[in-house]
Design a protein around this nucleic acid. Structure first.
Length: 149
DNA sequence: GCCAACGTTGGC
DNA sequence: GCCAACGTTGGC
């Protein structure tokens, strides 16, 4: 799951109550569907820093809630406000994501060096989805072989 | 800041 | 349903 560190960084997450954050602001249907239809409490999450000087995996997290309506879609003062969403028929959903532990950053260019990870959705050329599913083998490889610190 | 790639919008 | 125009993403 990608987050811009200027918005919510791994260090920000560590300071939040329960070290947990509502993953608000997703406005892409595919990414929304992953949260709404596939995520279960306890699922592992790689917390990825995007659109920044040092893009890469910054920490391990977990899904801490099932998907529920994203509150920002109803708030006309919020940049994620969606006039077409109603309380009765919300358009956008988010899960809560809770920090497990910060890790030494695994840079994007490091991830690209591993043939085992070649098929990762988020590493595909042109991929812009902020949330992508991870193969269990990829999760295993990253968390056991690449994580240090 | 640039720009390629992608998603969404809306006229027709 | 097509597709051009536009907006966004995100690495570099």
């Amino acid at each position: 799951m990608k987050s811009e560190p200027s918005d919510v960084s791994i260090d920000d997450l560590a300071t939040f109550p329960n070290q947990s954050v509502a993953w608000y602001g997703v406005r892409n249907y595919q990414a929304r569907n992953f949260m709404r239809d596939q995520m279960k409490i306890g699922d592992g999450v790689l917390f990825y820093h995007s659109n920044c000087k040092a893009p890469g995996i910054a920490g391990i997290a977990r899904v801490a809630s099932l998907a529920y309506p994203d509150a920002t879609q109803f708030d006309s003062n919020n940049k994620y406000f969606d006039a077409k969403a109603t309380q009765e028929q919300p358009r956008w959903f988010n899960v809560d994501v809770q920090l497990v532990r910060k890790i030494e950053l695994i840079p994007l260019n490091e991830l690209r060096k591993h043939p085992e990870l070649q098929r990762m959705r988020t590493l595909q050329p042109g991929n812009r989805l902020s949330i992508t599913p991870l193969d269990p083998a990829e999760w295993e490889y990253i968390t056991t072989r690449l994580v240090s610190g």
